[in-house]
Design a protein around this nucleic acid. Structure first.
Length: 172
DNA sequence: AGTGCGATTGACT
DNA sequence: GTCAATCGCACTA
């Protein structure tokens, strides 16, 4: 759920990637830094960073305090506030509003100001319960990384058109 | 203090 | 399919 001055935005998370403890691809791999400190917060806190100087990425910390790990939120099936998302993205096509981590952050207007936020409490951004059956979950290699690339730590809703990535990864 | 490189996207051949 | 954009940060010296 995302609360903006113009209204409420929400959607169903349909694709994630895990960056686990000891993972060479994870930002926490080399210890805590000013950028990644939120990964070391109690599970359920937001870690937001800028990738390629272009796109913000939303992660959720996933371990106990002091342990650096998180889950990248890669795609959303839009539900509420779709007109606002379209305006944030500058496009009309529903499927492309939040298909990909950078697009998702853009649609929800997420930036570093939300870094460190507790997503388990209602606020400007939080994780709601989810009221729909998720369907079958697929598993694959993660997208766009080089280190530890073979690990099957990407998870997605198999039959959702709102999932990013090449078909080769989505139909194993 | 300088440098190289991404957990990507959008435009273009 | 290829490729440039763009910048914060981690790493080297």
């Amino acid at each position: 759920m995302r609360e903006l001055p113009e209204g409420i935005l929400s959607g169903r998370i349909v694709e994630t990637e895990a960056y686990v403890v000891g993972d060479a691809a994870g930002h926490a791999y080399r210890g805590m830094t000013p950028r990644n400190r939120a990964l070391f917060l109690e599970r359920g806190h937001a870690y937001v960073y800028l990738a390629y100087g272009i796109s913000y990425m939303l992660n959720v910390s996933s371990e106990a305090p002091g342990i650096g790990a998180g889950v990248l939120i890669r795609a959303l099936e839009p539900r509420e506030g779709i007109p606002i998302m379209k305006r944030n993205r500058g496009i009309e096509h529903l499927r492309d509003l939040a298909r990909g981590p950078g697009r998702l952050a853009s649609a929800l207007r997420i930036d570093r100001r939300l870094d460190g936020l507790d997503l388990c409490r209602e606020g400007p951004l939080w994780l709601g319960r989810g009221d729909a059956e998720s369907g079958a979950i697929g598993q694959s290699m993660r997208i766009g990384i080089t280190r530890d690339a073979d690990r099957l730590l990407r998870f997605y809703v198999r039959d959702s058109p709102f999932v990013s990535g090449p078909r080769s990864l989505n139909t194993p």
